[in-house]
């Protein structure tokens, strides 16, 4: 265990160093921007991975919480003149409250019904964004979201925003890692391995699932906040069913139950459109194929799956 802790500490220190080095020395502002988007997506993947990967509960409507974070801060800052730094906790809290209320009945469901329930929830929230135009700006979107600033520091420049986003990613990683390694994380993994046995050793499975659902909603809302103040303009399309599926795809590619997998999944899914020319035409075909192929051949995700294959061949060679 101590080994495990020192290894984690080294990993996170290296991670911090890389963030700093890239942030200061990468010249090309376009790349900085792309990396900032990767950071936001990493937060999303991390959020969903806590729920799907560790607690084993699927959500096909998680973009709803992402959207609540984004619309929450947009509405509070533009309509009510909140400072964004006040809007941040308010938006996160709203997402948590919604998650709590929705989670109580939804997390009683399992399997396909849980999938359909979360899907339906995501759709309803998206319809709300689209139809409640007096507040959300409707289908045409919400414009004029202010830039972030903190005293003399302006986050309008790509570089500062990069540091802000990746700072949150680092904090998110460490927090989630600590949860995973704690009593709570063990109980979560226990639920994943066997819900009945977990209950039989005293884990309140219902409450724990709810807590993780709420935590996951909070991280998603944080990502939504960061997204809104990065692009100044949001519309319902960014939080639609496809957005939820993009989150699932990131988790599946990166590997369920893997913190660093979130980074991998988010990077691949952000870069793929950059690499593939005329990707937008093929975006859905590619996502669909990825989901199917990875789930059929490497159900534990790319990272785990490739590691498994590596270990199997190594064992074979040893024999």
């Amino acid at each position: 265990m101590n080994n495990h802790q020192t290894r984690n500490r080294i990993c996170y220190t290296v991670f911090l160093l890389i963030i700093l080095l890239v942030g200061y020395f990468l010249e090309n502002l376009y790349y900085i921007q792309v990396l900032t988007f990767i950071g936001i997506n990493t937060l999303l993947a991390l959020a969903l991975n806590m729920l799907m990967g560790y607690a084993g509960q699927i959500s096909l409507g998680h973009a709803a919480f992402y959207g609540i974070g984004a619309y929450g801060t947009a509405i509070l800052t533009v309509h009510y003149g909140f400072s964004p730094w006040l809007a941040l906790p308010a938006a996160i809290l709203s997402a948590m409250i919604v998650a709590y209320i929705v989670g109580i009945p939804t997390l009683k469901l399992s399997g396909y019904y849980l999938g359909m329930g979360t899907l339906g929830f995501g759709m309803i929230v998206n319809i709300l964004f689209r139809e409640w135009s007096s507040v959300t700006g409707g289908a045409s979107g919400f414009i004029g979201i202010p830039a972030l600033e903190l005293g003399p520091i302006s986050f309008a420049s790509g570089r500062n925003y990069f540091f802000l986003v990746w700072g949150f990613v680092l904090i998110g990683f460490i927090a989630c890692q600590r949860i995973i390694d704690s009593r709570i994380g063990r109980a979560l993994r226990a639920i994943h391995d066997g819900e009945n046995a977990a209950a039989a050793v005293g884990v309140d499975t219902r409450q724990l699932k709810l807590q993780i659902f709420v935590l996951s909603a909070a991280i998603s809302a944080l990502a939504g906040f960061l997204y809104a103040h990065l692009v100044y303009f949001i519309s319902p399309g960014s939080f639609s069913f496809i957005a939820s599926i993009r989150m699932v795809t990131m988790v599946v590619i990166g590997g369920m139950a893997s913190i660093w997998g979130a980074l991998l999944g988010a990077s691949l899914l952000t870069l793929l459109p950059e690499w593939l020319h005329a990707f937008s035409e093929f975006e859905m075909v590619v996502y669909g194929l990825i989901l199917m192929v990875v789930m059929i051949f490497l159900p534990r995700g790319l990272t785990r799956g490739l590691l498994d294959i590596y270990e199997r061949t190594r064992k074979k060679n040893e024999h």
């Binding site: 859905m284 669909g288 199917m292 159900p299």
Partner: peptide, 25 residues
């Protein structure tokens, strides 16, 4: 290989996105 609901959900969701993409193309 392991037909758990979560795997089959993701595969059929994948198929739905794939078919949508095909439809669009």
């Amino acid at each position: 290989k392991n037909p758990e609901p979560i795997v089959l959900i993701i595969i059929t969701v994948g198929a739905s996105i794939f078919l949508r993409g095909i439809g669009m193309i």
